[in-house]
Amino acid sequence: MNREGTIYTIVFVFIVSFAFVLLLSLTNQATIEQVELNREIVRQGAILSAMGFDAEGSEEIQQKYDSVAADPDAGLYVATINGQVVYGTLFAGPGLWGTIEGVLAVTADLGEIVGVEIVSDNETPGLGGRINESWFKDQFRGERVADDGITVTQTAGDGDPDPTNSLVDGVTGATRTSDSMEAIVNRELQRLRSVEIQQILRSLESQGGNA
């Protein structure tokens, strides 16, 4: 058979593509469950961590996650930690390169941020990607929420230790990512104030959510 002929070429490309794609789908099928599970655990871990739980390892995460009252469709979570009711909300908003997804947790009166966790982002590794680092995220812990939300901006030091000034130190060299974080968190605070969301949160709260 003529190896350079049109028919052979078409048949060959068809068979090769079919074989490789088949192998890929099999591999995908074999790993998809594990991949989904990993993703779910990362998400649950981030929700717990933002709300102030201490949970490490997939088993402890899944176990403690059961004590959180959740409305996954609305991305809302309610838990009681040390007698204090904490609201958590999943957020997604535009960063510099792609969507930043994460969790924001606040006290029930929306007056104080309990914590912020990042679930996924496509920010520049080493620059905007540093929003994943604890020095950045820990600044949100206990931060007071001002009437117009919080501010993420460049300060002189490395991190802003004062929780009362509604101010978070941005990432050096990643102004756009820092601005995005400010916009996302403030938009989410706004969303939590709305009437429908408050209703869902109240009903979740009455369902329990005892840790």
């Binding site: 350079e4 052979y8 070429t9 060959f12 591999t27 991949v35």
Partner: peptide
């Protein structure tokens, strides 16, 4: 076939890269 050599090479490379990606994800 010589004329689709590069395309087939790219297909093979892409195949292994996706495998690596899936293994890392899992």
């Amino acid at each position: 076939p010589r004329k689709v050599r590069m395309i087939v090479q790219t297909l093979i490379i892409a195949f292994y890269v996706i495998i690596v990606d899936l293994v890392l994800k899992a």
